[in-house]
Structures are given as C-alpha cells and as structure tokens.
Design a protein around this nucleic acid. Structure first.
Lengths: 120, 120
DNA sequence: TGTGGTACGAACAAATATGTAACTAATGGC
DNA sequence: GCCATTAGTTACATATTTGTTCGTACCACA
C-alpha cells in the first residue's frame, strides 16, 4: 500500500471552517450531550452525580468528557471541594448564560417544526 | 471474543435525546458543512457547482450528502431542470428561513466570545 | 477488617462522519 | 465518432465520537 497523506484535509478543514463565527458557536454546543447538560445547568448548580441522575442515559465517561470540554470552552465552571467523599460543583459561566435566549428560540423552532413533520 | 451487543445504547440514546426540542434543532444544523451551506443559501439560490465554488474546501461527495440531508429535513428545496447538461438549483425552505435571526445571534455570540478567548 | 460513596480514569470496541479517487449518463458542439 | 460539461455516484480509507467495562483514591463508619 502506498502511504497516504495522513490527516491533511480533515484537520485543515476544521480550522478553516471555524473561521465562521456561526459555525464556531454551533460547534461549542454541538454533540450529543452538551445541550442537555447546559440546559440543566441553566436552572441551578449541579454536582457530578446529580447531573448523572438528571441524564440517566449518559455514561459517566461521556459526562466527564463533555464537562471537560465545556470547561475548556469557558461555558462551565468547575469547583472542587476538598472533602471526602469528594464534591464537585458545575455551573454556567456568564458566557454560557448568554445562550439562554438563543436556546429558547432554537427550542421553539424545534418544537414547531418537529411537530409539523410528525403530523404529516 | 465474545459477541457484543450491537448498537444498543448508541442508537437508542439518539432517539431519546432528540425528544429535546433544542437538541433536535441543533442536530439539524450540526456537522461540518450544513451551516455554511445554509448561510450561502440565505442570500440566493445556488446551483450545485456554484455552491461548490463558494465552499472551496468541501468535496463533491460531502456537498451531495449534506444537501440530501438538508432536503430530507425540509430545510432545502431541490429543483431539477431537465436539461443537458443538467441544472439543479437549491434554495431555502420557509422553515429554514426562520433560522435567520437565530443564526444572526449565534454568529454574534461566536464573534464576541471567540475574540475574547483569542485576546487572552 | 471490610464496606460504601464520589468523581472520576484507562483500555478497548462500535458507530458515525469525513475525505480520496475514480467513474458515470446524457447530449450538444466539433 | 470524440470531447467537454453538470451533477452527481461508488468503493474505499481515515478520523472522530460515543459506548462498555473495569478499576482507583480517599476516608468515614460498622
């Protein structure tokens, strides 16, 4: 087999595409779980295990990964209390709270048009 | 190796999660290219080859796939003209046009907070 | 000594998303 | 007949995302 270019266009495209502010924003909230997590945190702080209960189908691994990403992206603040057993609280940052009204509109769009399709 | 459960939670989770209107909406516009395509079509109709020129880094295959998905989701209307060589035009549906103001806000969010991070 | 709760981490596996390269049908123009 | 054009399609390769399973550190408490 000839050796192939490794990982050229895939990664390059990613950086190029993110130059679009809109794509950038959607990427922050894309994926299977991020929105659900952010929605929960909109109303209150949660501990890791509480979030897990709220999202029964997520695995601990996914919850961890998503929370880490959200933290890196500045959407979630993580606070560790040095106790035993450990306690860690997650809450939205100001930046994430600005999504609030946008989420509302997106949610309305979803409700409206999903029903439209189902009814047909 | 013991045979493993095939595809249990992955697909099941997808259907469960989509019950959230917000996640449903974001899934419609998620992925690498959909937003860029929709943004182009916000201003005018485009032929396949014109879209390709506007999005130089997308491959024909990806453009086809994304347009098909957008069509299935009712966001894009595809019109084929029985000519040779063929002519196919893509335009937004009313449903997709409703994303307009939301896109604007998301884009503003992206511009604002990306710059914030870069400046740090 | 042993058990339990919390918030993870690591190794592996399955599923999906994206990219590469080559190919096609139809037909007007040469 | 031969070529160029348009809008794809097909087979394959690679990259990323998501899920499964098992394990761990800490210490209070029985």
């Amino acid at each position: 087999m000839a050796t192939r270019k490794k990982n050229s266009t895939y990664s390059r495209n990613e950086t190029i595409i993110i130059e679009c502010d809109l794509t950038y924003a959607v990427n922050k909230i894309g994926g299977r779980w991020k929105i659900l997590i952010l929605s929960k945190l909109e109303t209150q702080k949660y501990r890791f295990s509480e979030l897990k209960k709220e999202l029964p189908y997520i695995t601990e691994r996914m919850l961890t990964l998503q929370l880490r990403t959200l933290e890196e992206d500045g959407l979630v603040k993580r606070t560790v209390y040095a106790e035993v057993p450990p306690r860690v609280e997650y809450e939205l940052t100001e930046m994430a709270k600005e999504f609030g009204p946008i989420f509302k509109q997106l949610s309305e769009w979803g409700g409206k048009h999903r029903n439209a399709i189902i009814k047909v």
